[in-house]
Design a binder for these strands. Structure first.
Lengths: 210, 210
DNA sequence: CATTGGCAGTAACATTGGTTACAGATTTGG
DNA sequence: CCAAATCTGTAACCAATGTTACTGCCAATG
């Protein structure tokens, strides 16, 4: 494990902390689609993402979903942080967007390291900061953008995350994550294709000219 | 100052920390409508709210506003926290919703107290936690509710914050904060009045039967 | 290779919310 | 007290999005 830890967090954490993480952290590999966290569930450990991407989703009472943001390498789940500390239930769902590797930290260490290591405090604060900004981004999108702009933004983000010009998704899946209907997504995608921005295939969309 | 500090934070912070706050914090009273923070501005101090309410607003490039949430007594501004630590610009606007009193903490103390006082760490983490949850609430409203439900929720929140069944606002102001148009607000308010939920007057709305 | 199920395209329609325009009421300021 | 500004109500219309329904296409499977 020490190698992936060094590669991703070596520049962030001091030596002592890296050693502690190495000792108490457990390495974990999860496959694409794996549900890491469900709404209402309690959290027992804090994940440090070393590779891959995790999507964070919100759901209302009627089962309507909405994609909030993605976590990437070097990120941790701020929601989990607060859940750990407050012993509250998760407000969100987390699903592996790609295959991913992580290091799980037992929650008892959270408080201990916060006192002991400045770099840990900085990391935690920084994580919160990033997550709040991601949430603002999300709010901007929902509140200020039209569905076609949101869709395009979504496709670009998806492509960036997976480092692939081709997005492997059905229209229905996209509709869930944007909280709209399949028909609307099909309609707007067709318009984007007409504009030459994308190419549509069964189960996949290729980004062009962007 | 010591009295308002004790009343609001006495149960949260240990004695030593309270003393330090008392020494380095400066007391401040601000009137309703006072703009405490503008988008793009740098942050020099961290506010602890001891009375009143602050509204936090987001704006897009075209000047369209959106109310994110309110801060109340005992709260602090998590956005400010991250700005202090990261030395980044504010992403939001903060305006006093009512007359308010606060204690301003110089940002240098942030890191120092985070190391020294467990209760300070807890407070900061808790603040982040609360703010993330407020943001989730906001996202839920925008994403999952129709405008009439959002409007009603807004009125209730507004009433709760000011502890007053009467909301002193024009339809135009409400429209700004919900990011819609005056005509739409008037239309929906009229519907709510017909349903017997509110009573409309010039410059004010009275909540009934809720 | 025939059947089944999932996926995408499209039309027709309904609903929500945004826009424009104007009128009447009330307040404010000179 | 009069003129101007502000606030609200309302109608008519438009644009964006959501819904229903049906079609053909493709892929997997026995």
């Amino acid at each position: 494990m020490i190698q992936e830890l060094k590669d991703n967090y070596g520049h962030l954490f001091e030596e002592g902390l890296l050693n502690e993480i190495n000792q108490v952290g457990t390495f974990k590999e999860i496959p694409e689609g794996f549900k890491m966290m469900e709404i209402g569930q309690y959290v027992r450990a804090m994940p440090l993402l070393v590779s891959g991407a995790i999507k964070i989703l919100r759901e209302d009472g009627d089962g309507d979903e909405l994609l909030l943001y993605f976590l990437e390498k070097g990120d941790t789940c701020a929601m989990t942080l607060t859940c750990c500390l407050g012993q509250t239930k998760s407000e969100i769902r987390a699903i592996a967007e790609t295959d991913a590797k992580l290091i799980m930290i037992p929650i008892e260490k959270m408080e201990e390291w916060s006192e002991k290591y400045k770099s840990w405090r900085s990391f935690v604060f920084e994580s919160y900061h990033n997550r709040l900004n991601e949430m603002l981004e999300t709010i901007d999108s929902i509140a200020f953008l039209k569905m076609d702009e949101r869709l395009l933004k979504y496709l670009l983000e998806k492509s960036r995350i997976s480092n692939d010009k081709t997005i492997h998704n059905t229209h229905q899946q996209i509709a869930y994550e944007l909280h709209t209907s399949r028909v609307v997504v099909s309609r707007l995608l067709k318009k984007l294709e007409t504009l030459g921005k994308i190419e549509l295939h069964r189960n996949s969309i290729i980004l062009k000219d962007i």
